[in-house]
Design a protein around this nucleic acid. Structure first.
Lengths: 113, 113
DNA sequence: CCCGATAGCTTGCATTGCAAGGTAGCTGGC
DNA sequence: GCCAGCTACCTTGCAATGCAAGCTATCGGG
């Protein structure tokens, strides 16, 4: 519990990042740095490169995403990640689970007010 | 990623358990087993004793809760945990953070539909 | 006196966010 | 040519924490 609730925020991200990344990939294929940039626009979920790449590797290993190398017009090649069919199913399941948890927490917080 | 999304659910709990426990204690002092039972009524957040006691110990160490031993009419003594003033403030901060994250995730998920 | 239920706690493990650092391709200025 | 700076990918080591499993201790009933 290093710095009160900045540390806690990181724990909160932990449970949600995988869902957020799958959600972003559901729209269109993206590459690692692009995900970092996209998430940076949502301060609550912003993460560093050192978090994204291991996460993408885990998703790929689990078969939820596949990747394709593609040349960049302006820099080093990029590895685009696409949702697979199992990935899409998992995203749906996670979405439901998230909504359920979110609703439950809201209930607990309101019930004790 | 042991069993697909059962394992994920545990990661999702990770970020939210502390908030849920503080939320439950905001109503009235409770003891460990009682928290386990309370949370068991919310399947999404149900946890085991081996999770609650370390968590309570961390909260106590951080000064967010205090505990008092109290005799039980029917069994071994119970350790009742009460929210401290800093605990209450932390609960409020966490509640806001949770709402922000929840809203952001919802936005991401809807944006890609 | 033992047995089940209740209550608290500990140990060891696996997962995972993150800071820091490392490699390599591309571009523009010199 | 060559170097500085940017982009992009990846790895290493660490810390936090949920969880199964197991231990101790109290109480009451048979």
């Amino acid at each position: 519990m290093r710095t009160e609730h900045e540390a806690w925020a990181s724990q909160l991200r932990k449970g949600v990042l995988e869902l957020a990344v799958l959600g972003l990939l559901a729209g269109e294929p993206k590459y690692g740095s692009q995900l970092v940039d996209d998430l940076a626009t949502h301060p609550e979920l912003s993460i560093s490169a050192g978090t994204v790449y291991p996460l993408l590797a885990r998703l790929a290993k689990a078969g939820l995403v596949t990747s394709v190398w593609q040349e960049s017009p302006v820099g080093p090649p990029r590895k685009y990640y696409t949702l697979t069919e199992p990935g899409r199913r998992t995203l749906n399941a996670m979405t439901q689970a998230f909504r359920a948890v979110s609703a439950t927490v809201t209930t607990i917080l309101e019930g004790q007010r």
